[in-house]
Computed example of a mutant assay.
Amino acid sequence: MPALPNPFKSALTEGRLQFGLWLALANAYTTEICAGAGYDWLLIDGEHAPNDIPSILAQLQAIGRGGSHALVRPPVGETSLIKQILDMGAQTILIPMVESGAQAQMLARAMRYPPNGVRGLGAGLARASSFNRDADYAQTADEQVCLLVQIESCAGIDALDAITTTDGVDGVFIGPADLAADMGHLGQPDHPEVVAAVEAAIRRIVELGKPAGVLTVNRALARRYIDAGATFVAIGADVTVLADQTTALLKTFRAEV
């Protein structure tokens, strides 16, 4: 059997809008709850959440019980770490802090088997190949893996064209929070200068023929970024939802007593 089809990558290619949720609680139980909510994609965060390889694996298995597509963000774009994440069954990886075309090229090669890349051939031991039950996995995996690169600095914006046009980059994600800090607006991803920069980046990515993505919890900004051309949009995080709703619940009941 060949590698499993990647519905997220297909939707990107077709230009279909997909809504996602960030997962930072580092817990397979809460991930399974979120997987039943109907999001198009869920991102397991290994950059800022306390996730490691075993916890990412457990969450991949939990998401597999629902209808969402799993994305994984490792802490860095390191070749051996990418190999592990792919082998344990993730098909779509988001790499943070990409700042050059050369870096994007290295990441694209890390995602793919020779002769198109440098991914080590260990599929016979891997969950990705159903533990070698999918005999054609290695021959077909490159078509289904999906590399998303995250631009979140002024240097990344300056190199946007080179990054976006790199062969093997399937989508470009703008990170407003870090970009805001690098622009001198720490903690202000909604600052007008930041919003303008994000909108311009999204439009340029689309002009260059690649899908664009972004994360914002601001509904008005989400609409603006979608209008600018973003087609994979994260609209919240499990941590924020839990923190906000537990606080609001207690506040409401205290006010009524």
Rank of each mutant, 00 (worst) to 15 (best):
V145L: 08
L23N: 13
T79P: 14
L42N: 04
Q84E: 02
V241G: 05
L57Q: 14
A177D: 08
E256R: 15
A180R: 13
A11L: 02
V233A: 12
I33L: 15
L179H: 09
G124R: 11
I235F: 04
F232Q: 02
V98M: 09
N132T: 04
G117Q: 10
A180Q: 10
Y113H: 04
G120D: 05
L121V: 06
L23P: 10
Q61P: 04
A243F: 09
Q150M: 15
N116M: 11
A11K: 14
D52Y: 12
P7K: 10
V145D: 07
A177T: 13
I174G: 01
I63W: 08
V194P: 04
P189M: 13
F131V: 03
E143F: 03
A138N: 06
Q105S: 05
L221M: 14
G38C: 00
E207Q: 15
L42T: 08
N6Y: 03
T216A: 03
D182Y: 09
V72K: 03
G124H: 08
L215D: 07
S68M: 01
F173H: 07
E14P: 09
D227E: 15
A35C: 13
L42A: 04
V214E: 00
T79Y: 02
M88G: 03
W22T: 00
V217E: 08
I151F: 08
P75R: 12
A230Y: 06
W41R: 07
A234C: 14
P74L: 04
D158I: 03
I95C: 05
W41N: 07
S68K: 05
G46I: 01
L4A: 09
L60Y: 02
I93E: 10
K83M: 02
V72F: 05
Y225L: 06
N218C: 07
A110I: 07
L60R: 08
L121P: 02
M88K: 11
G187W: 05
T140L: 04
T79G: 05
L249D: 13
A230K: 13
E14M: 01
A228S: 14
T164F: 12
I151Q: 01
G66P: 10
I82L: 02
S129P: 02
G229C: 13
G120C: 06
A110Q: 00
E199W: 00
Q18D: 01
A177Y: 11
I205W: 00
D238T: 13
Q150R: 11
D161V: 14
N51F: 10
G168I: 07
T240Y: 12
K210P: 05
T13G: 15
P50G: 09
A255Y: 03
G66T: 04
L12T: 03
F131H: 08
V206G: 11
I95W: 06
A128C: 00
D178E: 13
V169W: 01
K83I: 01
A135S: 12
P7L: 06
Q245P: 00
L179A: 01
A58H: 13
P211W: 04
G187N: 13
L250K: 13
V239S: 12
A201T: 06
L125M: 14
L21Y: 00
L107H: 05
G15E: 13
T79H: 11
A110E: 02
Q105W: 02
P189V: 12
R254D: 14
I202D: 09
G67D: 11
Y39G: 03
I205D: 00
R204V: 10
L221Y: 14
A234Q: 12
N51V: 02
I56M: 15
D178L: 06
R133S: 12
R16Q: 09
A24L: 03
P211H: 12
D134E: 10
